[in-house]
């Protein structure tokens, strides 16, 4: 499957456009305005929290805010409410940082983990079998109620899509104005070599569709509901 036609292809379109190749280095893209960075940038942390809550709830998200000490109780309530029989957790240092190590060890039945040493089929099947996944996400963008998460060995892609219900844990300190601030962080981390990932997800509420008579249906291929839990002391 060799790609032996690349030069012909590129030369052809350069000729058609009447412009020579290899000019970009001297003409890098420079945006004409800074709206992506400055929009909502003047909001205080308290204002961003309120905005994040309003916009998340507008996207059919259940929005909760608790201190880490109260997180286990909150999760127990969600598990009981949704009649969860199988719980999926990430292999992620943030689970311990949020004080969930003991809580996870006491769960009955025991939670399953997205296993960094597991095979593709094992991890996908675990996500498929899970009633609920509790994920650790990187940012909450206030403007649209968007959580963002990069794929890691301990928290794969399917983790966020196959389970029926989904809870996202995010520190309050990681609420940012817009998707731009989150994207700037990913861009910098990848370019600095600190983040090795094949995938970044920006997720705004549960999956939905308007394909049947434009009637909004919440819960299509991805989780049928979502809960964001903001950790107020993190």
């Amino acid at each position: 499957m060799a790609n032996d036609n690349r030069e012909d292809f590129l030369n052809f379109i350069a000729e058609k456009s009447g412009r020579p190749r290899h000019q970009l280095a001297d003409h890098p893209f420079t945006p004409i305005n800074d709206l992506p960075e400055t929009t909502l940038a003047d909001k205080t942390p308290a204002e961003l929290f309120t905005l994040a809550q309003e916009n998340s709830e507008a996207e059919h998200v259940t929005f909760k805010a608790v201190a880490s000490a109260d997180l286990p109780g909150l999760l127990d309530g969600i598990i009981a409410e949704k009649k969860v029989q199988s719980l999926l957790l990430p292999t992620d240092s943030r689970i311990a940082a949020y004080g969930l190590t003991d809580w996870a060890a006491e769960q009955t039945p025991a939670p399953v983990y997205w296993n960094p040493q597991g095979t593709r089929d094992e991890n996908i099947q675990r996500a498929q079998d899970a009633d609920l996944a509790v994920g650790c996400v990187d940012f909450l963008c206030a403007e649209a109620g968007t959580i963002t998460v990069a794929t890691t060995p301990g928290q794969g892609r399917s983790f966020h899509f196959l389970p029926t219900h989904y809870v996202a844990l995010v520190p309050q300190s990681r609420i940012v104005p817009r998707s731009r601030q989150a994207m700037d962080w990913y861009d910098a981390e990848i370019k600095a070599g600190r983040l090795h990932t094949s995938n970044i997800n920006f997720i705004t509420g549960p999956s939905n569709s308007g394909d049947i008579e434009m009637v909004l249906v919440v819960g299509v291929h991805g989780p049928i509901d979502m809960t964001y839990v903001v950790l107020t002391d993190q």
Binding site: N123, T197, I203, T204
Partner: peptide, 17 residues
């Protein structure tokens, strides 16, 4: 924003899906 905006490439070392 739509529900899912994803930025994706080939699997990197350590990832299983």
């Amino acid at each position: 924003l739509t529900s899912y905006c994803s930025f994706s490439g080939e699997q990197v070392a350590g990832e299983s899906d």
